[in-house]
Design a protein around this nucleic acid. Sequence first.
RNA 1: AGCCUGGUGGUGUAAUGGUAGCACAGAGGUUUUUGGUACCUCUAGUUGGGGUUCGAAUCCCUGCCGGGCUGCCA
Length: 562
Amino acid sequence: MNESEKEEKPLDFIRSTVKQDQEDGKNEGRVHTRFPPEPNGYLHLGHAKSICLNFGIAEEFNGLCNLRLDDTNPVAEKTEYAQAIMDDLRWLGFDWEERLFHASDYFGQLHDWAVQLIQDHKAFVCDLTFEEMRELRGNLIEPGKESPFRDRTVEENLDLFQQMKEGAFDEGSKTLRAKIDMSSPNLNLRDPVLYRILDQEHPRTGSVWKIYPSYDFAHGQSDSIEGITHSLCTLEFEHHRPLYDWFCENLGIHHPQQIEFARLNLNYTVMSKRKMLRLVQEGHVHGWDDPRMPTLSGMRRRGFTAQAIKNFCERVGLAKRENVIEIELLEYCLRDDLNKKAVRRLGVLNPLKITIENYPSGQTEEVDAINNPEDEDAGTRKIPFSREIFIDRNDFMEDPPKKYFRLAPGKEVRLKYAFYITCKEVVKDENSEVSELICTYDPESRGGDSPDGRKVKGTIQWVDARSAVACKVNLYDRLFSNPNPEDGEEGKDFVDCLNPDSLEIVESALVEPSVQDFEVGEPMQLERVGYFCIDSDQPEDGSLVLNRSVAMRDSWAKKAKK
RNA sequence: AGCCUGGUGGUGUAAUGGUAGCACAGAGGUUUUUGGUACCUCUAGUUGGGGUUCGAAUCCCUGCCGGGCUGCCA
């Protein structure tokens, strides 16, 4: 991309702000963002949008982006998740260099700031129970009432807070709260909790802390400590911004700018960690990396490329309005990337045997096949061909409709890269199912052209019977049958919208021999069928399992449906 | 109900007072040894009503609709 093209591309509202700030010399022209996941689950496509935004902006504006694990709640957080987060980020291709941080790195500083607020008469220790606090908070239309403990002396607060820290009190018996405004229309400002007592081992700090800061008390300050300039988050934090600002101002520390954007929603799926956790725990899917999951690990296993995901994140755009992206855009991005990258192979999902009666039995030859018509550098390969082959059942019809270009009694088709064949006879089994086709071939048509120049409209894929490799294939479809499982009809749970056919297993497909040489996850296109890769979970007997990443576009199927 | 926030083709996103554009989806076509890809054409939009203005998606007023907010989650 040259400079003028860069100029012309319109900036989203966040980039416009960042650009303006940089030009105005705000933060000395520095741009520093961060990606702050909580290690309580796996990263998903929604996170990818945020990742691309934060790392993308840092790169575009000559800045930096930190990775910060927001580990303020040891109840739900695990190192397993932290590890997976880093694996996924690296796979996507982003590098935080030496800037891996944890909110827990700042527990000491956060504690000192809490003490500072107490000394400034801006925070107090509260003995209210969970229920009492909720009652006094008021509601959407009525102001709250102040806690009876709000006027404790600084000394008393300091002493109590110290004891909280030392573990003198039971979990839930006391909190440290900010003194802001119990009548604020923004409920987050009604004396929010800064610290709660949690009798919980922390994955990083062990048992040294008995109290843990809340999100509101940790996030902005963590940003501040790291010198973040633009703190980008999703819309649901909009109501927290006044609090974010309040802490930075009242503590007198560097004040990053929080900017909110709309999170990503995709139809036919769910995009919340909580819901995904349920899918995993209740066994609706086979784990966080189930290829039907919108997690990055699931998508990777399914055969998505990092590039396809990044392209998608760029195309979905960025704004403040709620959005639901159509899953077709995701599929488009995958096909678009794979079309350029994936080498082509031949395979049949549903084999139908063909005997070529005029081909000498016992003879085998090799035909040349192009590895990728979109990439000359991918070269060619040889595929074995002989008297007995298999084609896909979909490519034969005994009684074909008009404009059906594939094989039918008396019709001629081209076997890709090989010969023209003509169907002479249909053999049926005892159930009158088609069990085999007897065909003839045209020896002159080797390579797929005949010297007489006759037109053969249909070209189909095939495999040689003797050398083909059997494999199992997982065909994945959308996880939900409802476009918006997140808010189905009333009383309807999102798991009721699960698509019962989201996984179709083909037990005995046949592929050309070289497919065995692929590595796990390496993309291939089975011509005319779709994009596939070898599953990461391979059976111990050495047999092959393929995952379908996405089917080819199929305009014939669309037409035939009408 | 109160507060906050948002409304541009089916979906998403541009245009910030001057020709409503792009992508995906949909329809049709050309090319093709993948009914793929590529290419071409078409369909389709400013939430309603007032106002300001030579001129409004854009500014003002008002209605309507969507989303968020009453965790010691993040």
